[in-house]
Design a protein around this nucleic acid. Structure first.
Length: 452
RNA sequence: GGCGACGUAGCCAAGUGGUUAAGGCAGGGGUCUGCAAAACCCUGAUCGGGGGUUCGAAUCCCCCCGUCGCCUCCA
């Protein structure tokens, strides 16, 4: 499989360094509800993981929660609740949404606040080696102590100086230096440390957690493109300076943006559609189709029409995979050819649009065979299997099931009317169910109904 | 200013030197159906604009137009 490595800016053949693939994906800072942009990112890395496992790799996947951070503190103080409570609330919500999106859980979900000893140990090591220094209870990373700083994002320290932010009261040696540890301020949660009470800076938690759970070198580190700088750049600096081992990460993967109209969808712009809303309107498969019909490194633009299109497309695949075939001879759908097409597309830097095109062609082929009355178990099994690699369940949303007996009753009533050629009344029943979101389909084997 | 991305049918979106430019959604025509729905069949683009390289370019080079992202909040 070839993957685009942000570090080399090229496609590279992927091979893990050991007998398992070590993946670290940057998780959320749980200070607000998650939106479709987050869904996009985690769907993409879920597909990466599923595909690696499909290829037979053993994967160890770690995803963190940055549950201590400026915005989290501000938000918690504004609401008058402890930071930990606010974080836990959004983490639980996020977990549930990930579950509903059918995202395979990471093997470990460490939280920054539960890794303070590792973080302190790492900062101490950096200070000892001269890569970090203490100033007023803060500790900063000395960017100039690492000559290759900027290698991921393609910038050099000198050209960054003009734009670097220095907060009043900070005692940085260089404006580009960044905080590893922040001395406690009034009203902030804090932990004891050799530099006095304080809390970790933004980037160190990921270095600490990835080191503790995956070791000095990761195979794959993923996240959104906005994390390239400064977050991932700083992680590299810290981790490589601390361990003395290069590289920290062998393959850097970054997904493109979800945009809203022409702008990036982000919390700070306030133009977000929450995951909850997406799930309710379009279903998990619909949201996944929306995301996966575009290549992961390209920007993806939100529109109701595009999501609706994803929902309809998911329905098409679902019906193809689930409606029963006939009793005739087995269909001669070339499933191996479709499988090869799928694998070839996925091998090419996770080209999910191409992979999906193969699934849609398989679906058409299979539908044609069903129309001919052939047995279609084999192509359906293949469709299910490959769709699962993309995390698609192809299952009907499990809602309104309590209403099923009543719907069945109405369907029987309508069929009595049809048998009596009372079509006007029969159509009224169908239209009424339609308004309630139930679609009826009459076929040779009787009437079936579905949502949507 | 520095670094980067993008512009392909009504919409979303693959394809990055060579068969008729994937696929999805929407639309039109047809088959099936009591009528529908679903499904199937048929149906649409010469690839932002201009110039160049080449036997041959959506794909490479140059110029222009337009859009967006990052540059220490952000998946």
């Amino acid at each position: 499989m070839r993957l685009y490595n942000t570090m080399s800016r090229r496609l590279e053949e992927f091979a893990p360094s050991g007998d398992e693939v070590k993946i670290y994906v940057c998780g959320i800072t749980p200070y607000d509800r998650a939106h479709l942009g987050h869904a996009m990112s985690y769907i993409i890395f879920d597909v990466l993981r599923r595909y690696l496992e499909f290829l037979g790799f053993r994967v160890k996947h770690v995803q963190n929660y940055t549950d201590i951070e400026d915005k989290l503190i501000m938000r918690a103080n504004a609401q008058g609740v402890p930071v930990s409570e606010l974080a836990t609330r959004y983490i639980e919500e996020f977990d549930e949404e990930m579950r509903e999106l059918n995202i395979t859980p990471a093997h470990l979900f460490p939280r920054a606040t539960q890794e303070i000893p590792t973080i302190i140990e790492m900062i101490e090591g950096l200070v000892e080696k001269g890569h970090a220094y203490q100033a007023n209870g803060d500790v900063y990373f000395r960017v100039r102590s690492k000559s290759d700083y900027g290698k991921l994002s393609g910038r050099d320290v000198d050209s960054m100086r003009a734009g670097a932010r220095v907060e009043p009261g900070e005692r940085k040696e260089d404006p580009a230096d960044f905080a590893l540890w922040k001395g406690a301020k009034e009203g902030e949660p804090s932990w004891e440390s050799p530099w006095g009470p304080g809390r970790p800076g933004w980037h160190i938690e990921c270095s600490a957690m990835s080191f503790r759970y995956l070791g000095e070198t990761l195979d794959i580190h993923g996240g959104g493109q906005d994390l390239i700088f400064p977050h991932h750049e700083n992680e590299i600096a810290q981790s490589e300076a601390y361990t003395g081992t290069q590289p920290f990460v062998r393959y850097w993967l970054h997904n493109g943006w979800l945009t809203f109209g022409e702008e990036k969808m982000s919390k700070s712009l306030g133009n977000i559609i929450t995951i909850r809303e997406g799930l309710e309107k379009y279903g998990a498969d619909g949201v996944r189709l929306f995301v996966l019909t575009s290549h992961y490194r390209s920007p993806l633009s939100y529109s109701e029409e595009a999501l609706e299109s994803g929902k309809r497309a998911a329905e098409r695949l679902r019906l193809a995979a689930t409606l029963p075939g006939g009793n005739g001879p087995p269909a001669d759908v070339p499933v191996e050819a479709y499988r090869e097409r799928f694998v070839e597309a996925m091998d090419d830097d996770l080209n999910t649009p191409e992979a999906l095109a193969a699934l849609f062609d398989l679906a058409r082929d299979l539908n044609r065979a069903r129309d001919e009355g052939r047995a279609i178990e084999e192509p359906q099994a293949t469709l299910h299997e490959l769709a699962a690699v993309l995390g698609l369940t192809l299952r009907e949303p499990e809602t309104a099931m309590g209403a099923a007996p009543f719907i069945d009753l109405l369907v029987r009533l309508r069929n009595d009317l049809r048998a009596a050629k009372q079509f006007e009344q029969a159509d009224r029943v169908r239209a009424g169910l339609g308004e309630l979101g139930i679609t009826l389909e009459d076929g040779p084997e009787g009437t079936r109904w579905r949502r949507g």
